[in-house]
Write a protein that binds this DNA or RNA. Sequence first.
DNA 1: GCCAACGTTGGC
DNA 2: GCCAACGTTGGC
Length: 155
Amino acid sequence: MAWWLMKSEPDVYGIGHLQAEGTTLWDGIRNYQARNFMRSMQVGDLAFFYHSNASPPGIVGLMEVIETGVVDPSQFDPTSKYHDPAATQEAPRWDCVRLAYRRTFPAMLSLDRLREHFSVDDLAVVRRGNRLSILPVSDSSAERIFRLMGLEPDG
DNA sequence: GCCAACGTTGGC
DNA sequence: GCCAACGTTGGC
């Protein structure tokens, strides 16, 4: 079981949306490094839900990978902002994973607080200017995140 | 709104 | 293959 951190803008799709829906397809990822991280995910992996472009930004909840290797349907949709004219049904370029809501944390763990406790080597999201929307999290960093919130680790 | 970081694109 | 221009992300 591996840990991840996945960013989304709360105005676009926040933890509340996921809580209401129960599950979601993490589609629209158009960055190869982020896509490759999703390709390495396995069912049962856990991911911290991170609110980006928020004030303040930070970790707000937890979700679980429930399906991997899903072809991202938005790449074929000409009306989608994620449409990729270079993608074909025979040779899709983008895939994604399906996630299930696990929990909303009692309080956000803000980026400021993360920076007080983690170096960029421990947790890449604290690196200034990090634009990558999906990041791996080490077991020890995941445990420290829960401890910082005063919670027992899931998983 | 600004700007740093950085991935992508295209000319050569 | 190099690199400048450009676009996007995301913090502030």
